[in-house]
Write a protein that binds this DNA or RNA. Sequence first.
DNA 1: GGCCAGGCCCCAG
DNA 2: CTGGGGCATGGC
Length: 245
Amino acid sequence: MSVDLERTLLGGQCFTWRKTGNCYSSVIDGRVVEVRDERDIRKEGLEDYFDLSFPYGEAGRFLSSLSPVMAQAVASSPGLHILRQSQWNATLEFITSQNNNIKRITMLLEKLSAYAGSHISGRWYALPTREQLSPVSEHELRDLGFGYRAPYLVALCNEFAPIPKDMDTGTARSLLMARKGIGGKVADCILLFSCHRMDVFPMDTWMKKVMAKNFPDHGQDRFAPYQALAQQYLFEAARNGVIPC
DNA sequence: GGCCAGGCCCCAG
DNA sequence: CTGGGGCATGGC
């Protein structure tokens, strides 16, 4: 099964991709990349970023066997992958995401990139690095439209420390949540989209409704060891009206 | 014009 | 530990 670029890149995992015709573009590691299909992924050297080696087929079959609703969700997004972003970028993105919608998250990060990030080419700017964001004040961030998230980003510049690869998920989650503006949901998104932790279950407003409606008697543990993947399939299916919520 | 958005902080019980 | 109000802003 080939990668579903639309759902993987524009479904709320990452907020820096843009679509022009059938071409998806973003800035990754300081350069503009353009992707139309899996051949482009390989040509750009993005096999790891797009997580091409993970056994999505096998995991999907396992999840589908657990319940009809889950089977429906999996079947509706067969090419959905989990991106492997940098921890810094994911943290920046998901602090911005709180109580916010995908369109506005995208717009805010674009403004921040143009304001403090490196200019790459044309209209393309990279998200600011920690060093580039550090001198930006809370006031400037509020002017850009970040609202009450502004002080969280200021604090992040002082507190950021990458999660070690071998740290267990529970410890890592607590570490993340010790930072200002990072609660359980944002921590889970960071752990999933930059550390590829399959044992998290980001619970946003959509997922609360999905679980109450479809799995009132079950917790996320039912989906182990692929809780995070289950969550992604359900999230996509709910937003696309494939399953009730 | 009110509700909602990939929520979190803080405080009261 | 749990519940609920407040918080910035713009899309719909």
